Lab assay of single mutants.
Amino acid sequence: INASIYDEIQQEMKRAKVSQALFAKVAATKSQGWLCELLRWKEDPSPENRTLWENLSMIRRFLSLPQPERDAIY
Rank of each mutant, 00 (worst) to 15 (best):
residue 3 A to T: 15
residue 3 A to Y: 15
residue 3 A to Q: 14
residue 3 A to D: 14
residue 3 A to F: 15
residue 3 A to V: 09
residue 3 A to M: 14
residue 3 A to P: 06
residue 4 S to M: 14
residue 4 S to P: 06
residue 4 S to G: 13
residue 4 S to V: 06
residue 5 I to L: 07
residue 5 I to S: 04
residue 5 I to A: 02
residue 5 I to T: 01
residue 6 Y to V: 04
residue 6 Y to L: 01
residue 6 Y to E: 02
residue 6 Y to C: 04
residue 6 Y to D: 08
residue 7 D to F: 09
residue 7 D to Y: 08
residue 7 D to T: 13
residue 7 D to H: 08
residue 8 E to V: 04
residue 8 E to P: 02
residue 8 E to R: 06
residue 8 E to A: 10
residue 8 E to G: 01
residue 9 I to P: 05
residue 9 I to K: 04
residue 9 I to F: 00
residue 9 I to W: 01
residue 9 I to E: 02
residue 9 I to S: 01
residue 9 I to M: 12
residue 10 Q to H: 15
residue 10 Q to W: 03
residue 10 Q to A: 14
residue 10 Q to F: 02
residue 10 Q to C: 08
residue 10 Q to L: 09
residue 10 Q to V: 12
residue 10 Q to M: 03
residue 11 Q to C: 08
residue 11 Q to G: 13
residue 11 Q to A: 09
residue 11 Q to Y: 08
residue 11 Q to W: 05
residue 11 Q to H: 12
residue 12 E to G: 00
residue 12 E to D: 02
residue 12 E to C: 03
residue 13 M to T: 03
residue 13 M to Q: 05
residue 13 M to W: 01
residue 13 M to L: 15
residue 13 M to H: 01
residue 13 M to C: 05
residue 13 M to I: 13
residue 14 K to G: 11
residue 14 K to D: 14
residue 14 K to F: 05
residue 14 K to R: 15
residue 15 R to E: 03
residue 15 R to P: 00
residue 15 R to D: 06
residue 15 R to L: 06
residue 15 R to T: 05
residue 15 R to I: 01
residue 15 R to G: 01
residue 15 R to Q: 01
residue 15 R to N: 04
residue 15 R to W: 04
residue 16 A to Q: 00
residue 16 A to G: 11
residue 16 A to T: 05
residue 16 A to M: 04
residue 16 A to C: 05
residue 16 A to W: 00
residue 16 A to R: 03
residue 17 K to C: 08
residue 17 K to P: 02
residue 17 K to A: 11
residue 17 K to G: 14
residue 17 K to R: 12
residue 17 K to I: 00
residue 17 K to L: 05
residue 17 K to F: 07
residue 17 K to M: 09
residue 17 K to Q: 11
residue 17 K to S: 12
residue 18 V to W: 03
residue 18 V to N: 05
residue 18 V to F: 03
residue 18 V to C: 10
residue 18 V to A: 07
residue 19 S to D: 15
residue 19 S to Q: 03
residue 19 S to M: 02
residue 19 S to P: 09
residue 20 Q to P: 10
residue 20 Q to V: 09
residue 20 Q to M: 11
residue 20 Q to H: 06
residue 20 Q to G: 14
residue 20 Q to N: 08
residue 20 Q to D: 05
residue 21 A to E: 14
residue 21 A to V: 08
residue 21 A to I: 04
residue 21 A to Q: 12
residue 21 A to M: 10
residue 22 L to V: 11
residue 22 L to N: 07
residue 22 L to G: 05
residue 22 L to W: 07
residue 22 L to E: 11
residue 22 L to D: 15
residue 23 F to L: 00
residue 23 F to G: 02
residue 23 F to S: 02
residue 23 F to H: 03
residue 23 F to T: 06
residue 24 A to L: 01
residue 24 A to T: 08
residue 24 A to R: 01
residue 24 A to E: 02
residue 25 K to W: 08
residue 25 K to A: 15
residue 26 V to C: 10
residue 27 A to H: 02
residue 27 A to I: 04
residue 27 A to L: 02
residue 27 A to C: 04
residue 27 A to D: 02
residue 27 A to W: 01
residue 27 A to Q: 00
residue 27 A to V: 13
residue 28 A to L: 07
residue 28 A to M: 08
residue 28 A to K: 02
residue 28 A to H: 03
residue 28 A to F: 09
residue 28 A to E: 01
residue 28 A to V: 14
residue 28 A to R: 00
residue 29 T to K: 15
residue 29 T to Q: 12
residue 29 T to E: 15
residue 29 T to L: 10
residue 29 T to A: 10
residue 31 S to R: 09
residue 31 S to G: 12
residue 31 S to P: 03
residue 31 S to A: 06
residue 31 S to F: 05
residue 31 S to E: 13
residue 32 Q to T: 13
residue 32 Q to M: 07
residue 32 Q to V: 07
residue 32 Q to L: 03
residue 32 Q to N: 05
residue 33 G to H: 15
residue 33 G to N: 13
residue 33 G to T: 14
residue 33 G to M: 14
residue 33 G to S: 14
residue 34 W to E: 12
residue 34 W to R: 02
residue 34 W to D: 09
residue 34 W to P: 01
residue 34 W to Q: 03
residue 34 W to G: 07
residue 34 W to Y: 03
residue 34 W to T: 05
residue 35 L to C: 03
residue 35 L to Q: 00
residue 36 C to K: 08
residue 36 C to T: 15
residue 36 C to Y: 09
residue 36 C to W: 04
residue 36 C to L: 12
residue 36 C to N: 15
residue 36 C to P: 05
residue 37 E to T: 10
residue 37 E to A: 08
residue 38 L to N: 03
residue 38 L to Q: 05
residue 38 L to E: 03
residue 39 L to P: 01
residue 39 L to S: 01
residue 39 L to F: 02
residue 39 L to C: 02
residue 39 L to M: 11
residue 39 L to G: 02
residue 39 L to V: 06
residue 39 L to T: 05
residue 40 R to H: 12
residue 40 R to I: 06
residue 40 R to D: 08
residue 40 R to T: 11
residue 40 R to N: 10
residue 41 W to P: 01
residue 41 W to Q: 14
residue 41 W to A: 14
residue 41 W to C: 15
residue 41 W to N: 07
residue 41 W to L: 14
residue 41 W to K: 15
residue 42 K to S: 07
residue 42 K to V: 03
residue 42 K to H: 08
residue 44 D to K: 11
residue 44 D to N: 10
residue 45 P to I: 06
residue 45 P to S: 04
residue 45 P to R: 01
residue 45 P to N: 02
residue 46 S to G: 08
residue 46 S to C: 14
residue 46 S to L: 10
residue 46 S to A: 10
residue 46 S to F: 11
residue 46 S to N: 08
residue 47 P to I: 12
residue 47 P to A: 07
residue 48 E to D: 08
residue 48 E to P: 08
residue 48 E to A: 12
residue 48 E to L: 11
residue 49 N to R: 08
residue 49 N to P: 02
residue 49 N to K: 03
residue 50 R to S: 10
residue 50 R to Q: 14
residue 50 R to H: 15
residue 50 R to L: 11
residue 50 R to G: 10
residue 50 R to I: 14
residue 51 T to G: 12
residue 51 T to L: 09
residue 51 T to P: 11
residue 51 T to C: 06
residue 52 L to F: 05
residue 52 L to T: 02
residue 52 L to S: 07
residue 52 L to V: 05
residue 52 L to Y: 05
residue 52 L to G: 02
residue 53 W to A: 06
residue 53 W to Q: 07
residue 53 W to M: 13
residue 53 W to G: 06
residue 54 E to Y: 06
residue 54 E to V: 07
residue 54 E to C: 05
residue 54 E to A: 11
residue 54 E to T: 07
residue 54 E to D: 14
residue 54 E to N: 12
residue 54 E to H: 11
residue 55 N to A: 08
residue 55 N to C: 13
residue 55 N to D: 13
residue 55 N to I: 11
residue 55 N to T: 11
residue 56 L to P: 00
residue 56 L to C: 05
residue 56 L to R: 02
residue 56 L to M: 06
residue 57 S to A: 13
residue 57 S to D: 08
residue 57 S to L: 14
residue 57 S to G: 14
residue 57 S to F: 12
residue 59 I to R: 00
residue 59 I to V: 14
residue 59 I to T: 01
residue 59 I to E: 02
residue 59 I to W: 04
residue 59 I to M: 05
residue 60 R to S: 12
residue 60 R to D: 13
residue 60 R to E: 08
residue 60 R to W: 04
residue 60 R to A: 09
residue 61 R to D: 13
residue 61 R to H: 14
residue 61 R to Y: 09
residue 61 R to F: 06
residue 61 R to G: 11
residue 61 R to L: 10
residue 61 R to W: 06
residue 62 F to C: 04
residue 62 F to M: 01
residue 62 F to V: 02
residue 62 F to T: 01
residue 62 F to Y: 04
residue 62 F to L: 03
residue 63 L to E: 04
residue 63 L to A: 01
residue 63 L to K: 00
residue 63 L to Q: 01
residue 63 L to G: 00
residue 63 L to I: 01
residue 63 L to R: 00
residue 64 S to G: 08
residue 64 S to T: 13
residue 64 S to N: 14
residue 64 S to R: 10
residue 64 S to Q: 14
residue 64 S to M: 10
residue 64 S to K: 08
residue 64 S to C: 10
residue 65 L to W: 00
residue 65 L to S: 09
residue 66 P to S: 06
residue 66 P to V: 05
residue 66 P to E: 11
residue 66 P to L: 01
residue 66 P to Q: 10
residue 67 Q to L: 13
residue 67 Q to P: 02
residue 67 Q to M: 12
residue 67 Q to E: 13
residue 67 Q to I: 12
residue 67 Q to K: 12
residue 67 Q to S: 14
residue 67 Q to F: 07
residue 68 P to C: 14
residue 68 P to G: 14
residue 68 P to T: 09
residue 68 P to W: 07
residue 68 P to A: 15
residue 68 P to Y: 10
residue 68 P to M: 11
residue 69 E to G: 05
residue 69 E to K: 14
residue 69 E to V: 07
residue 69 E to W: 06
residue 69 E to Q: 10
residue 70 R to Y: 04
residue 70 R to K: 04
residue 70 R to V: 00
residue 70 R to A: 02
residue 70 R to Q: 04
residue 70 R to I: 00
residue 71 D to Y: 03
residue 71 D to N: 02
residue 71 D to L: 00
residue 71 D to E: 11
residue 72 A to F: 10
residue 72 A to I: 14
residue 72 A to W: 06
residue 72 A to G: 08
residue 72 A to V: 12
residue 73 I to A: 13
residue 73 I to N: 08
residue 73 I to P: 01
residue 73 I to L: 13
residue 73 I to F: 12
residue 73 I to C: 13
residue 74 Y to A: 02
residue 74 Y to F: 07
residue 74 Y to M: 05
